[in-house]
Design a protein around this nucleic acid. Structure first.
Lengths: 361, 361
DNA sequence: CTGTTAGCGCCTTCAG
DNA sequence: CTGAAGGCGCTAACAG
């Protein structure tokens, strides 16, 4: 990492480093109309590349935005990342990415690393958890983030506020009405489904999952129906597949009895799980929506061409990422401390939950 | 970004900054068994967070790895990103992410930004192009990267070497046998398909696309078949959809003639395009593989549950990302300069290209 | 084993 | 409008 320095450029141009700095970077006005040219040429011929670390040190501001996600290859997070990236670009900042697998410990480590790099802001996405085994981790993460805020950093959160966070100022959360949307989904589903309902949820304590489950049950109740049975598995495709396999067994067993069809409506708390469940049903020889209705949540773009089209709740993922990035220097309207902005989603009823399908051919 | 400094910690602990530095960071041995404790407590109580920028300046090494992709929300890139992230983690470095939309100009800008940040290495993914309008952009990108290498940086490339790059040392490329794999796919497809072949490719000049097209034709030829017609569209889902719509029209027209069925085998040069084409066919009322066989390339994970299962060529995307990261300090076997490592793929024949499907019921 | 002295590369008052 | 001097926070040679 040798590269030439500003001083070398200045020397070659026969000016002081201060002058060189003024013309090469955004100082008030560029000095001497022709001195400037001389400096620029010198820089060019030396292949000068300003050292952002040094600049950052001097100006104490890094031009960095840190993003913490569970897994960048998960389409939910990569969509959010796109939004964050877009916002970062608009603020002329670079994006630092950390993936954690979802454990608060790793999230804390990532936050610490970002703080060390003096990131101007940190965005954290991914469901929070209140599981007992995450207690300590959450506390550590909250402490790290709180300190970061106290030192002037801004943190953006998509979804639930960080568990246990205290710093009043600095946090900016993008709230997602998971519960309400799930309730709405349940109500609409209840309208054209006559069988039982089953929910495939993530582990208990995962806030996003819990909210969606609660909302769904509430929706069912408001439609005058009994609450759905809840199956707990992993919050990913594998979890959905596992639950799907279990359900497939039940459905087939029921179909074998004389009383006949039990056609459940399965709500997986996210699209990826729903797809996993659907795959399991299919590999057991069942068909959707004939033998079971299936719905998900998120409306992942890559899954839109899935057939039968998956009923789900569309979330403006990219927009959520964009909104989660705390405002830049300007500090826009709403200003600092404790900002909360809400997005909204939309229930998308599609083939996967249709009642009477066309001719089975 | 106030935070407390090492000097403050040292003062509070009653030692010199050098000593504090030694205990708080990885120096040879931690000094005095109890002095160390004192320093650590001081740091703790002050909530000290080392300033990585300053450390980087002093050690002239940033601990950063830059990754350049077209679009992080594209599953192809996000899978690679996961691999890069994993490798970065192993090297205990952070990941800087830049998305460019694929234009060489933006890629150059990203490379420059990474160079400015003194990234220890830069990984660039995404098809290179030889289109005329990219000439200047490519030159600029190559110049930027060459300079970066000359200054001691290492660049990793997944896919084709950067067009026009000269610096002999420093480049590390992960080669993908696109052409051979496509040829193999063509041969296997030729084995159980009797109709015509059509290729849906990206714009001419996109190396990855061109390689795959060329390979496919070669495979056809070696199977004694005539070359396939090539449709050029965008290298994304929309492109696939567009071409699919066109083909659907043709297929339906042919089916209407007395001579009867024209059941083409459509090879889209990547999975996302294939899915787009499939969606178009379906929305025109056609079915796969009954009315047309469809194959893609990449074997995107999120698309594995697509039905009918898509025939494609599996690429070890994550592994590619991991391999693209130049070795850390050690410089592993193979050392520096001009490294090239190859990965291999595997043809996956699935439902979407099956010849005589079961009973159409 | 600890403290002192120099910078790393740049920006920013403050004089000239 | 330009140059000189000091410092951002930390590490790395040297002394002691």
């Amino acid at each position: 990492m040798a590269a030439s320095t500003l001083t070398e450029v200045a020397r070659l141009a026969g000016v002081s480093p201060a002058t060189a700095s003024r013309v090469l970077n955004g100082s008030a006005r560029t000095p001497g109309p022709e001195i400037a040219e001389r400096v620029r040429k010198a820089a060019e011929s030396l292949g000068y590349v300003p050292n952002a670390q040094a600049q950052g040190l001097a100006k104490s501001s890094s031009g960095l935005i840190g993003l913490i996600v569970h897994d960048i290859a998960d389409p939910y997070f990569s969509a959010i990342a796109r939004g964050v990236q877009a916002a970062a670009r608009e603020q002329r900042k670079m994006l630092l990415l950390a993936t954690t697998g979802g454990t608060p410990e790793d999230e804390q480590a990532a936050a610490a690393a970002f703080a060390a790099r003096r990131a101007d802001s940190i965005v954290i996405a991914g469901s929070r958890s209140t599981r007992p085994q995450d207690r300590d981790g959450n506390a550590g993460l909250a402490a790290e983030l709180d300190r970061y805020c106290r030192n002037g950093g801004r943190v953006g959160v998509v979804g639930h506020p960080v568990v246990g966070a205290e710093a009043p100022e600095g946090y900016h959360v993008v709230a997602v009405p998971n519960e309400d949307l799930s309730a709405e989904l349940a109500r609409e589903l209840a309208g054209n489904h006559s069988g039982s309902f089953v929910v495939i949820g993530g582990p208990e304590g995962l806030l996003t999952s819990d909210d969606r489950i609660r909302g769904f049950q509430r929706g069912l109740e408001s439609a005058g129906l009994a609450p759905a049975e809840v199956l707990r598995t992993g919050f990913d495709r594998a979890g959905g597949y596992e639950a799907g396999t279990l359900l497939a067994g039940r459905i087939k067993a029921a179909q074998a009895t004389p009383s006949g069809a039990s056609r459940p409506c399965i709500f997986a708390v996210n699209d990826v799980m729903a797809i996993g469940a659907a795959a399991a049903l299919r590999s057991e020889g069942l068909r959707i929506p004939r033998d079971a209705a299936v719905a998900g949540f998120d409306d992942i773009e890559t899954l839109r061409d899935f057939r039968p089209a998956l009923s789900t709740v569309r979330l403006p993922l990219e927009e959520m990422g964009r909104l989660a990035v705390p405002a830049g220097v300007g500090g826009g309207p709403g200003g600092d401390g404790g900002t909360t902005v809400s997005v909204t989603g939309e229930v998308m009823l599609r083939r996967s939950t249709q009642a009477a399908a066309g001719a089975p051919a």
